[in-house]
């Protein structure tokens, strides 16, 4: 991750559902971001505490598992020495909308995918989950 800080913006995606997390992360990578994935708020805190990783923003499921809930995690992150922008999303649709907002502001300046297509894709993935 050493080169990441200099070359790319980094978004930390926190979601306990691996299929949703994967789809959102892949979407953001397509927009040019370096994406770090965390399945819990504890993993997310570990990443934010690591000084070798420069996280520019966090997209966190409001229901993400962990010893802190998402709101406690956001408050904890706001108190860090280096504050980071945290977007909470309460649904797949909201998460994709926020990801699309990141893409609009991001390195490639434009959405490579249709956000509704991403939502549909996630729905299909979830429908196939064993």
């Amino acid at each position: 991750m050493a080169e990441q800080a200099a070359n790319s913006q980094c978004i930390l995606v926190v979601d306990g559902d691996v299929l949703v997390r994967h789809a959102i992360a892949d979407y953001l990578r397509g927009c040019g971001y370096v994406v770090v994935e965390a399945s819990t708020t504890d993993e997310a805190a570990t990443v934010l505490n690591d000084e070798t990783i420069s996280v520019d923003a966090v997209l966190c499921d409001a229901g993400a598992p962990g010893s802190q809930n998402a709101f406690q995690f956001r408050a904890w992150a706001a108190d860090r020495r280096k504050p980071v922008r945290i977007a909470l999303a309460g649904s797949v649709e909201a998460a994709v909308r926020k990801a699309a907002d990141f893409c609009d502001e991001g390195p490639h300046l434009g959405r490579p995918y249709d956000p509704q297509g991403v939502v549909d894709y996630i729905r299909r993935l979830l429908a196939r989950e064993p």
Partner: peptide, 27 residues
Amino acid sequence: VAGSGREHSAVILLVEDEVLIRLSIAE
């Protein structure tokens, strides 16, 4: 994923519970 138009790269499934180790391998 949703019509990105990207080529299909070879896909590696990486399973590691330590997030920083996972990251240090994935990137």
